[in-house]
Write a protein that binds this DNA or RNA. Structure first.
Lengths: 128, 128
DNA sequence: TATAATAATGATAATCATTACTATTTATTA
DNA sequence: TAATAAATAGTAATGATTATCATTATTATA
């Protein structure tokens, strides 16, 4: 593994933020520091880092890949109204069927969709 | 909601199978019965049925939408080796944080990735 | 039942996120 | 330092999904 400054930058950007940016968002951040980094390099390295399990990916209904620099085991909640993604760190047990069916889990991707507290408040206010 | 024969066919196809086909696979099945149905119609109706919550969608690392005619609450396991998708019907509890953070969940999409029993067996045999 | 209103279709073009390609640059190794 | 290999920037290609639009089918209503 050859660590180019571009790859380092991309990893640092992702590790340094707590949200779940798409490749495009990472590209925008990267260009602030390295103005002529190319989008292809960002994609290539995000893919590379994900393959190497340095970062995680999050597949959502928006059909864009969201990247997650936090590899501690956690689930996600996505608000269908505002799009906000919330981390859920409390550990969950694996379904019993996993063991029964002889499956080996290497990755968990639990995503819950619904309405966040803020959007619920807003909805309540406007209905009065 | 106007129920065209195409929409009915697409719903029936999905309800009639236990796998998780992509739009393309549904299109192939549909053409066997209605040879000049268009791919656009298949996409349009799958989207429509998903929006109406008649069917479910499954977003995976392959970046294609998989459709699921079974709307009973269940999780999925995807084998990284053979790509097989296995339904996990045993109910799981929602993370406690959902309640604590005041979130309302309308949809759950839990996907586990790993190795299925068959692929594990094959790997064991070849290593001997 | 005929008609008006409108929703859905088939065919095709457009979109857009992601990947592949290629000449060039950069890093590593001998 | 030269040879080897990997990574980059820039750009073209890919491929799943959507949008468009003229035409057809479905539903409601007179």
């Amino acid at each position: 593994m050859r660590y180019s400054c571009q790859r380092k930058l991309i990893e640092d950007i992702l590790k340094g933020r707590k949200d779940h940016p798409t490749a495009d968002a990472v590209y925008l951040s990267a260009r602030e520091i390295m103005p002529n980094i190319s989008l292809g390099t960002v994609y290539r390295n995000l893919k590379y880092l994900a393959d190497e399990r340095v970062i995680d990916t999050l597949e959502t209904v928006d059909k864009r890949i969201h990247y997650d620099g936090d590899r501690t085991r956690h689930a996600h909640f996505i608000c269908k109204k505002c799009g906000k993604i919330i981390d859920l760190f409390e550990p969950q047990e694996l379904p019993d069927e996993i063991k029964k069916l002889g499956l080996t889990v290497s990755e968990e991707k639990c995503v819950y969709y619904g309405e966040c507290a803020e959007c619920k408040d807003k909805a309540d206010k406007t209905s009065n």
